[in-house]
């Protein structure tokens, strides 16, 4: 069966109103090597899109383009109806404000090691969000409670397990009240027990209706929480559809091979 052409905008069929994220015709190269090749994707508000694919296929780069940590070469990106990138130029007037609306959780946590968990969650609130100290600390404590880490609030990252660090990173990303959360392989550096802790928190966020893009190899989790699954290979969207379509009944041989490999290794 033929794959859907990757240059046609495909919208999750559950959508209503304007999408939280709209990506169209995105290109990105590193040193002449094409990493994203004319990628189109819409993420409707309140939906969860999982991006799967082999390492080096372009999925992390695609996600990093959403908050402009990577600057695309061509194409357009809109967040909540506002065009932030178009025709090779950043059109977002306030990049810091954009990034407060789009939280990001990294594969290697990237917590600030010189600060305690609670201070990690406070920092951006005070210095990027203009939140007062007392309010920022109160909110940080609440968020740490929400991810089950109130008792570890004054611990330093090096005193915490990988799962705990990643949950602090999620609390930190939530601190400025983002409308969208980006997860870049959040569990790939974790042991199975820690993975379970992090997935539990993500499941709760999904149930709360947070719009999320999730780059992952955790196919069972992707299947459980995703409204839409995108398989990327060689910088192109090879296949996309509902989780059941892509993961249970892949149409493309590359998708099927990937799913078979990670379903068995997972």
């Amino acid at each position: 069966m033929m794959a859907k052409p990757n240059n046609i905008t495909l919208v999750c069929n559950q959508t209503s109103g304007s999408p939280a994220i709209r990506i169209s015709g995105l290109h990105k190269s590193f040193d002449g090597r094409l990493v994203l090749d004319n990628v189109d994707l819409d993420v409707p508000t309140g939906k969860i899109v999982s991006i799967i694919g082999q390492s080096g296929g372009g999925k992390t780069t695609l996600m990093r383009c959403v908050n402009l940590l990577e600057r695309p070469d061509q194409g357009a990106i809109s967040i909540g109806g506002e065009t932030i990138f178009s025709a090779g130029n950043v059109t977002c007037r306030n990049l810091a404000r954009l990034r407060q609306r789009v939280g990001m959780v990294f594969q290697r946590f990237n917590l600030f090691p010189h600060l305690t968990a609670v201070e990690n969650v406070v920092l951006a609130q005070m210095h990027a969000g203009g939140v007062g100290e007392k309010e920022a600390v109160a909110r940080a404590v609440k968020l740490l409670s929400r991810v089950g880490l109130a008792k570890r609030a004054v611990a330093y990252p090096e005193q915490m397990s990988g799962g705990e660090q990643q949950r602090v990173a999620i609390a930190r990303a939530l601190a400025l009240g983002p409308t969208v959360l980006l997860f870049d392989e959040p569990t790939s550096a974790l042991d199975p027990e820690s993975t379970g802790e992090v997935l539990r928190v993500m499941r709760e966020l999904a149930n709360d209706g947070m719009t999320m893009i999730l780059v992952t190899h955790e196919l069972p989790f992707a299947k459980e929480v995703s409204d839409w699954v995108v398989f990327i290979d060689g910088g192109k969207i090879v296949e996309q559809g509902t989780a059941a379509d892509v993961l249970d009944r892949p149409r493309e041989a590359r998708t099927a091979a990937y799913v078979a490999r990670y379903a068995s290794s997972g």
């Binding site: 810091a96 954009l98 990034r99 407060q100 290697r108 990237n110 600030f112 951006a124 210095h127």
Partner: peptide, 20 residues
């Protein structure tokens, strides 16, 4: 990654340097 995490949180280059 520290600089990236800080920028992803909306801190500008100056504040990233000072606080992170």
């Amino acid at each position: 990654g520290q600089q990236e995490a800080s920028e992803a949180l909306g801190l500008g280059r100056g504040k990233t340097f000072t606080h992170v």
